[in-house]
């Protein structure tokens, strides 16, 4: 086990450097330059030269990339944003990541709760209204994009509560923003619905499969009820695929969603993924990609470890 962790951690810098080089190349060859803000005017040639010199970009990609790496290794400095002067990449990540991570984790927890419940309920009574309900959640979560569910939740959750309960100024949900735990409820639902749907489907299908396997039949033969067999023996196994789904899902949800953050006005990191590319803000692109890649790798490792721990049959090597 220790060897696995070690070797995975040793692979990490290698994988990250490959990702870094590929991302840098793409960010560099992307057309346009970072000095023109949306809709603003293009600086004249002399000013552009002055700007390139200012960000060390005037001597070509190798020098620029070299000084970037030098900054990382000598000073742990991930460079500055060009589109937002005065902001460092590290600062942008430091501000955005905790917001996105806490929202993402809440969303994942919500998704896990809703998904597991729906999956189990569906499997308990196949073809019953409960099963159809579980299927409905799955369908909604998978087929409705978050900008639809998000907007609907905002309109219904925040506005209609005001119209219906005009006196209750303290109980309704805030109109977006990031100003207290209450402001997390709606975006966490919007963000968690898709994982919930996948989890529900994984559990529902897994349980259906496992409930007809030999060992469950044996358990039933020993006198366990359908329900007992399901909870005591089947669920554990059906949960394994969910665990492997959780790794990448958590990494992507916790690094933020552009859509949900935009709709609910949340100052998270998801926004940076899109905005930095639009602005061609190269070091920010590199920074957020590094964060995402690292989280993805670490979460996958955690999942593997949890897997081995939950199911002793699996050997890690």
């Amino acid at each position: 086990m220790l060897r696995l962790i070690l070797s995975r951690l040793l692979q990490l810098p290698l994988i990250l450097s490959v990702i870094l080089v590929v991302t840098f190349t793409m960010a560099w060859v992307m057309p346009g330059d970072p000095f023109t803000a949306d809709g603003a005017k293009q600086p004249n040639e002399a000013v552009k030269q002055a700007m390139l010199a200012r960000y060390n970009m005037d001597k070509g990609p190798y020098v620029f990339f070299g000084s970037y790496l030098e900054g990382i290794f000598t000073r742990l400095d991930f460079g500055d944003s060009i589109a937002r002067p005065g902001r460092t990449v590290a600062g942008i990540i430091k501000d955005g990541l905790p917001v996105s991570a806490s929202l993402g984790l809440t969303a994942i927890a919500f998704g896990l709760l809703l998904g597991t419940t729906a999956g189990v309920l569906g499997a308990l009574k196949p073809k019953s209204p409960l099963d159809s309900g579980s299927l409905a959640i799955t369908l909604i979560g998978i087929s409705l994009p978050s900008f639809v569910t998000g907007a609907v939740l905002l309109a219904v959750g925040a506005s209609l509560t005001r119209l219906l309960l005009p006196g209750l100024t303290f109980t309704h949900l805030p109109l977006g923003g990031w100003s207290g735990p209450r402001s997390m409820i709606l975006p966490a639902i919007a963000l968690g619905l898709a994982p919930a749907a996948y989890i529900a489907r994984l559990i529902r299908l897994g349980l259906a499969d496992i409930m007809s396997s030999d060992y469950v039949r044996t358990a039933r033969a020993k006198g366990l009820s359908h329900r007992q067999a399901l909870f005591k023996h089947a669920l554990k196994v059906a949960f394994l695929p969910v665990l492997s789904f959780l790794g990448p899902a958590a990494a992507s949800v916790m690094t933020g969603s552009f859509v949900v953050e935009t709709i609910f006005n949340i100052p998270g990191l998801g926004f940076e993924f899109v905005k930095s590319v639009q602005n061609k803000d190269q070091l920010v692109i590199l920074g957020v990609v590094l964060v995402f890649a690292t989280m993805l790798i670490v979460f996958n490792l955690l999942v593997d470890l949890a897997y081995a721990w939950v199911d002793p049959r699996i050997e890690l090597s």
């Binding site: 905790p98 984790l105 809440t106 994942i108 896990l112 100003s179």
Partner: peptide, 27 residues
């Protein structure tokens, strides 16, 4: 089952710990 509950528990605790972090209340 216990082990799965533990995994879920860790997720829940981490969520609560993070949930009340990084908020700024109003003006």
């Amino acid at each position: 089952m216990l082990r799965i509950a533990t995994v879920l528990g860790i997720i829940a605790v981490a969520t609560l710990a993070l949930a009340f972090f990084s908020f700024d209340d109003g003006l």
